[in-house]
Amino acid sequence: MAENVFSWLDERLGLKAIYDTILDRKVPKVNWWFTLGSASLFLGIMQGITGMLLSVYYVPTPDHAYDSITFIMTGVQFGWLIRGIHHWGASLLILTAFIHMLRVFFYGAYKYPREFTWITGVGLLISALGMGFTGYLLPWNQRSYWATTVGSEIAGTVPWVGDFILRTLRGGTNLSALTLSRFFSLHIWIFPAIILATVGTHLYLVIRLGISHIPDKDS
């Protein structure tokens, strides 16, 4: 029965071909540092799942943001778990992605033919930092409010166009409901869309080119 289902699906979806090209392929023998890429992917998926769940209760307005998060933490069963994972996952993700980058650098894996993989990787790291910056404001507490005030002020020091950037970032001169809702939009739609596309490219390249091998002394 199971075999029949599988062959029916395989005939239409080409599962075997996928298995052969993605899973059943030879790669160089590597060490444990090479696991951090997929660890970042795993943490990213966890962020996606817990983020979607948080948006079930979270309300992105200055009136409700803080109370809705207090409600998630105290009024919803396992809300503390979902928020806790999202909170700590963000830090861990940045850390693993950064160490992953250092590993790639140390083994010279950004060189031919993986230059473009590296570029997408740097893009992902920057986007992750963007996620961190926008997500930091969402709880609308003292810490997030003042950190974002200063953070956006930094953008305001750019010569000539600084004030313009500042007002674009904040949606006005001061932090307000407009700031919160545009940060929310960036955090749950715009950055995730960019990240999804970039992760797709990154993974395609990793599979197409194979993971790099550990260089020997002559190379």
Partner: peptide, 15 residues
């Protein structure tokens, strides 16, 4: 570990 709490998380207001 994630899935079971998620069900509770969703139905919590109904309980």
């Amino acid at each position: 570990i994630v899935g079971l709490p998620v069900i509770q998380y969703f139905i919590s207001p109904a309980l």
